[in-house]
Amino acid sequence: MSEPLLKLTDVSKSYGATAVLHDISLEVRPGEVLCLLGDNGAGKSTLIKVLSGFHEPTSGTFEVDGKPATFKSPRDAGEHGIACVHQFGGTFPLMSIGRSFFVGAEPTKGWGPLRRFDRKFAGEVAVREIRALGITRVTDGDRLVGGLSGGERQALAIGRAVYFGANVLILDEPTAALGVKEAAHVLRIIMQARQKGIAVILVTHNVTHAMAVGDHFAVLIRGTLAADFRKGERTREEITDLMAGGEAMAELEAEIEAYQREHAGQVPDPAELEQLADHQKPTA
C-alpha cells in the first residue's frame, strides 16, 4: 500500500469547553477516495475546517508526506497541496470565469507599475481546464460564473484546485444541490481526479454516491470516528445504518421488535412509530 499523503493522529478540536472532535486518526492515500460520512452535527464540517487550515486543532498531529505539519491558515494548507471545495463551488457568481479561476493567484504580464492581470491567459486556462473535466458547454472565460450550472461550478472549482497542484482535494457535499445528471458528472470528475493520483476526501449524505466512488469510508458519530473501513467490507445496508445515526437506528428497530412481541406481531401504526422515533432522538 502506498504511503499516506496526509496522516492525522489523535486530532481533537474543541471550541471553548465544547469538544467537537475526539481523537480522530485518519490516513489519506494518493489515488484514493475517502468518503467522510456522518449525520448533521457529527463533526464533519469541523474536521474539514481543520484539514483545510480554517481552524487549528486543539491537540493531535498532522503529517504531510510523512513530515509533521501545522496549518495556521487556508493558505498554509494550500501550500501543502490541500484544497477545499465547498458545496456551491466556493466561486464568485458575479466574477468572470477566468478571474474566478485565478483568484488569489492572478497571472500578470508587463513590468513594474504596468504589471497587469493577464485576462486572456486566465480565460484560456480556465476554459481549457474546465473542458478537460468534460464540461464542453463552457467556451468563454469572460462570462460570469453565475451563468454556470451547479455541476459546472464544481468543475471550475475542482479544475482550479488541480491546476494549482492540489494533491488532497476536499469536496464538501459536492452533489447535494445537484440534479441526478449533474451529480453523475461530478462523480465522474472525482474519478478522473483519483486517476491522476489525487487523494479525494468526499463528504456526502448520499450512500449511492459514496458507494459509487469511495475506496475508503470513515463514519463520524458525535465527534468520534465510529467506523473506518474499506470498500467491500460493509454492505450498503450497514453503511446506510451508520450514516443514519448507527446505534440510534438499531435501537429503534429493537424497540419496534419489542412492540411487535408485546402486541402479538402487530406492526405499530405510524403515529406510534413517530413517538418511538421521537423517543430515540439524541437529547443533545
Binding site: S73, G90, L94, M95, G104
Partner: peptide, 28 residues
Amino acid sequence: GWMLHASRYGNWILAVGGDTVSARATGI
C-alpha cells in the same frame, strides 16, 4: 480604474465582495 480592472488587487476586491469566506480560502 487601473487598480480595479487591470491589477491583481482588483480581482481581490471583487472576490472579497463576492464571497469573503471563499476569498479567505484562496489566501487573499
